[in-house]
Amino acid sequence: MLTIKNLHAEVEGKKILKGINLEINKGEMHAIMGPNGSGKSSLASVLAGRDNYTVTEGEVWFNGKNLLDLAPEDRAREGVFLAFQYPVEIPGVSNLNFLKTALNEIRAYKGLPALEAREFLKLTKEKQQLVDFHSNLMNRSLNEGFSGGEKKRNEIFQLAMLDPQLAILDETDSGLDIDALRIVSNGVNKLRDAEKSFVVITHYQRLLEYIIPDFVHVLYNGRIIKTGTKELALELEERGYDWLKEELHLKESV
């Protein structure tokens, strides 16, 4: 579904991604871990099309389309979704209106008619329950004055509403208390199916007990330096990243 080949990207002249290779197939759950500043959010941003990043080398293919050629909205319409590490607050744009616009723009792209008000409300109710998203937040301005946890839940709620093929969750678990974490993880698990893929970026192995990944990648200094299974996450939790660095130097010098 998604193929990243030798991806290099920079921001404000600073090289951030230095040759990422990653293959994601239908139905897979990938976790990306790595120290602060290693480039995890940058990778997510480049995939979503944030325009302050410049891709200097490499390719990204999504369902046979060159993702890097597409505007951010077209990537979303093709089925890429990014749950932001820091969702923005947009005063004056109601959550409900925002979602309706997004949903209908995606439907129009696919040649589908706009949802009737009744169908939209039904869908909203259903998905709200999935992440226990309070309906009083629906009529409020987008993320304005939301608590950290509410913002993260809103990201997952949007994910559920927009139903993408590939969802990238950037530290959606950070700052969540254990109840919220359980709710969010359950929501994600319910959305999992054979057609959809996920990339979860996280610092905490804790999340991966709820959302069991097929692969765990370690991103370090703009490169994926190791790939393993969920056991790797446990090991990272216990030992940190230094041993990996040493192992890597060892390998490189051999």
């Binding site: 909205e73 979303a76 990014l82 947009i90 616009t101 997004a102 995606i106």
Partner: peptide, 18 residues
Amino acid sequence: SMFYLRSRGIGEDAAKAL
């Protein structure tokens, strides 16, 4: 804000309108 809206499939013009 513009990037956030566009990343949800909202085109540039519709995002500006919002």
